[in-house]
Write a protein that binds this DNA or RNA. Structure first.
Lengths: 238, 238
DNA sequence: TAGTGGTCTAGACCACCTT
DNA sequence: AGGTGGTCTAGACCACTAG
């Protein structure tokens, strides 16, 4: 396959789009080694330098990673990455945290208006709703409510891992590559107050998150109610 | 000047370090056009491709920017950048906001323990402390307390612009390139409650920020108390 | 030793902007 | 027209990893 179809795009974008497509089509799967830069260049009819630029762009997006002398690989949604990139709650003394989750409720429902809007659903789509409590040791930290489209995650069960993005990738071939969060301060509602050992109305963080795939489709909506006495939400910008 | 001194670093890093150094030394100043890739390559004894990689890395760090056909420029701390990158409060309906600030108090003090820790000060260093109220139209939104070392910002006055990072750059040659923030939910204290038109103890956001220069030195500590009824803190991750 | 990614070069042509 | 960055190539050598 030669890349004669140009579309005005630079060649390296055509190359990176091609590889992106192959990952979405699971031709290249998480953990797999890609062909070498020279092989890809020969196959696609471009030079190694052009392949290199395309691969580097995908590495920047964390879709691939490289190891010198070994090869170029499709990124996996490691637990570590799930935790570091998508769990932004930190202990005030600076320590990272790995809270374990316990499922409180699990069910299948007709999507409401907010779920339609946030997940971009079609009429009459259904969602799984999951409510979980996350704790560190005996200490409860946050309650999260999670909605996903049933059509995208068929046969989900209430027995769920602590970090869901790895499950989405391994079981459903859906890779979360970006999240958008909104953080507000609210008075803790009664239900969450009881679970978190707080008094109703005490200030807590409300974290509203949309998770997007590598082609920018929203796949999960999550709202967390989080204690804010010993924990905080962290963010760096450059 | 030829770059014979190698130090084990790749050439393009030696080149980007050289340019970084020249910006810190104000040989290249914000807004200035850099010599062309070929000129830099000739001056430093490397090829245009190597200069290109070095410049691209600095563009990624937002230290430079390019315009095709025009040249490569040293980034300025534009108001737009100050607002977009370092002001992460958004209206709930999605609109961006440009709140104007009014200085409430301004003074010079011996630094306390927390300021010493957060700003990396030396014994007996002094700080300017500034308290400001930011509003959108008639609507007060947040109160911020700001500390900077007097030694770094001599002769600062209480007459301050809305976006300080541009002032730091133009008047003091200090460029903020990174911020670290911690967000918590607290009950609004009495002083801020009065200014923000809230009732004491109502939930609000507390945003604690350290601003770092391009060589990673902390230069400003800021703590904002922000209404959270119609505004939220926004964060995207990839 | 052979294969991979990492760096570097030299030269070409294009797209864009100014004068 | 002339200069800039943007893309692309072909080829070289290095550093790292495996078997």
């Amino acid at each position: 396959m030669r890349l004669a179809e140009y579309e005005g795009k630079p060649l390296y974008e055509v190359v990176s789009d091609t590889i992106r497509r192959r990952i979405l089509d699971r031709v290249y799967r998480p953990g797999m080694t890609l062909p070498s830069e020279y092989q890809l260049g020969e196959e696609l009819g471009v030079s190694q330098g052009t392949v290199r630029k395309a691969l580097n762009d995908l590495v920047t997006d964390r879709i691939l990673f490289r190891r010198q002398g070994l090869g170029t690989f499709v990124s996996e949604q490691s637990e570590d990455r799930s935790r570091c990139l998508f769990f932004n709650i930190m202990q005030d003394d600076g320590g990272a945290m790995s809270p374990v989750g316990r499922t409180l409720t699990f069910g299948q429902y007709a999507a409401n208006a907010e779920e339609h809007r946030k997940l971009g659903l079609r009429p009459r789509d259904e969602v799984y709703r999951i409510k979980r409590l996350r704790s560190l040791g005996e200490e409860p930290i946050l309650v999260e409510r999670l909605s996903v489209a049933c059509s995208k995650f068929p046969n989900l069960t209430r027995d769920l891992p602590d970090y869901m993005y790895r499950l989405y990738q391994i079981e459903y071939g859906i890779t979360v590559s970006k999240t958008q969060e909104r953080v507000k301060a609210i008075g803790v509602p009664q239900y969450e107050a009881k679970l978190l050992g707080m008094t109703c109305g005490e200030p807590c963080l409300s974290i509203d998150r949309i998770a997007l795939t590598i082609d920018r489709q929203p796949v999960e909506w999550r709202r967390s109610i989080c204690r804010s006495d010993l924990w905080h939400y962290a963010c760096e910008r450059t």
